[in-house]
Simulated assay, not measured.
Amino acid sequence: MTDTLLHHRGEGPASAPPLLLGPSLGTSYALWDRVAPELAVSHRVIRWDLPGHGGSSPDLIRPGATVADLAGLVLALADALGLERFAYAGVSLGGAVGLHLAVHHPGRVSSLAVLCSSAHFDTGNGSKAWEERAARVRAEGVEWLAANADSRWFTPGFTVPGLVEDQRRADPEAYAACCEALAAYDLRAELPRIAAPTLLLAGREDPATPPAHLREIADAVPGAALVELPGASHLAPAERPEAVLTALRGHFDGERGGARRGMAVRREVLGDAHVDRAQERQTAFTARFQDFISRYAWGEIWTDPTLSRRERSMVTLTALVAHGHHEELAMHVRAARRNGLTPEEIGAVLLQVGVYCGVPAANSAFAVAQRVLAEEP
């Protein structure tokens, strides 16, 4: 990290669709600890810290800052990481940043999820409450906020000590500047401009941004969906990670259309039994590779209409024989039969391979194919 960029953590394959995760005021990217690793199975997840929070320098923000300033820091981070377009999910202030990006930088945001947030953080007396909090933090520090963090963030009896410690360690001046950004923020009139697919998640027991705030956004953003999470207060990803993960996976699944198509084709070509066995053997270590195969090999190459599946089977058999991948060859002899090749056509392919790859390679391939074809009823 440098002092010119927000502190951040990257997870997931670099080739996967990028997804940025924004935190709530007073917390670090640890807010996403129970959600981000699962999202990283199918996305390149980048979670970031607010200025003066977690590992981000307090010098990245100044008094009188705006949500637009914070959005600019997020865009600078995305640019530094080479992310031209990305999905985005954010909590509270992090959600406000996402709304601003979707309104003012629509070309950058492919899909948006806003959690426990608002288009305005008016507590009933305009911006005065946030200005008063900023002044008190500058005068007294943030310990008093840490002392009542549980009641502001979680349902009774629940806590996450690490997040409360994040509040205690936040830089007072940077925290105060973030409060001033919330005081000046009101995006209500601009919400209809959001074109990105948008999901709103509300904690039913959230006193800071109750469901009515998320409903207001959902009513204004074309096509937006609203989900209320029972048993969740303001920091839903920490308190109800399973529910948040399910909702985000469903929403961002559009980013993984290739994976869905690929899995369907994979089953059609290789058979349900083979794919089910592969899924059962999948571990956290292999999950990203399995996703890579589904998205690229099956979701893009095998779905390309330029070649028929029969033709792709012929090419695949040739490549597998040439490289001596006999276990894969057996699997794709079965696949070739599903794709319509007759035993005679498979034999013709192997003869062709024998001419160009050598008799020993063809000899081994014929043995594998004969064993597989003998399995047929």
Score class of each variant (00 low, 15 high):
318 T>C: 13
262 G>Q: 11
247 A>H: 03
283 T>M: 07
249 R>I: 03
329 L>Q: 06
285 F>H: 08
332 H>D: 04
266 R>C: 01
339 N>C: 06
282 Q>G: 11
280 E>H: 11
320 L>F: 08
286 T>G: 03
248 L>H: 02
294 S>V: 00
257 G>K: 11
300 E>L: 07
322 A>I: 04
312 R>I: 01
325 H>D: 15
294 S>L: 07
290 Q>L: 13
296 Y>T: 00
301 I>P: 01
254 G>M: 06
299 G>A: 10
267 R>N: 06
249 R>Q: 07
289 F>Y: 13
335 A>Y: 03
310 R>C: 12
321 V>W: 00
297 A>S: 12
332 H>N: 02
278 A>Q: 08
301 I>S: 07
324 G>Q: 04
266 R>H: 07
290 Q>Y: 04
258 G>A: 10
284 A>N: 04
329 L>C: 08
253 D>Y: 08
315 V>T: 10
262 G>L: 05
265 V>L: 14
275 V>I: 05
267 R>F: 05
324 G>C: 02
265 V>W: 02
319 A>N: 09
305 P>W: 00
280 E>N: 08
269 V>G: 01
267 R>I: 00
263 M>Y: 09
296 Y>K: 00
319 A>V: 14
253 D>V: 08
292 F>T: 10
313 S>K: 00
296 Y>N: 07
303 T>R: 09
296 Y>E: 04
263 M>C: 11
293 I>K: 03
290 Q>H: 11
342 T>S: 15
254 G>F: 14
266 R>Y: 04
286 T>H: 11
313 S>Y: 03
326 H>Q: 13
288 R>Y: 01
338 R>T: 05
268 E>S: 07
317 L>C: 09
266 R>E: 03
314 M>L: 14
322 A>T: 12
254 G>Q: 07
292 F>P: 00
344 E>K: 09
250 G>W: 06
292 F>C: 09
288 R>F: 08
307 L>W: 08
291 D>P: 04
285 F>Y: 13
268 E>F: 01
325 H>G: 13
323 H>Y: 05
262 G>P: 13
334 R>H: 15
249 R>P: 02
290 Q>V: 03
340 G>A: 07
285 F>Q: 01
286 T>I: 06
276 D>K: 01
263 M>R: 14
270 L>E: 01
276 D>W: 02
293 I>W: 01
272 D>H: 05
314 M>E: 09
275 V>E: 01
270 L>H: 09
300 E>S: 13
265 V>M: 14
276 D>V: 01
261 R>D: 15
282 Q>Y: 06
317 L>I: 05
305 P>V: 03
340 G>F: 03
287 A>V: 04
279 Q>Y: 10
309 R>W: 05
273 A>C: 11
305 P>E: 04
253 D>G: 14
323 H>K: 15
314 M>C: 06
299 G>D: 10
256 R>T: 10
271 G>I: 05
259 A>N: 15
247 A>F: 09
250 G>N: 11
273 A>I: 13
342 T>H: 05
274 H>E: 13
266 R>T: 01
326 H>N: 09
336 A>S: 07
281 R>T: 04
317 L>G: 07
251 H>S: 11
251 H>T: 06
301 I>V: 15
323 H>A: 14
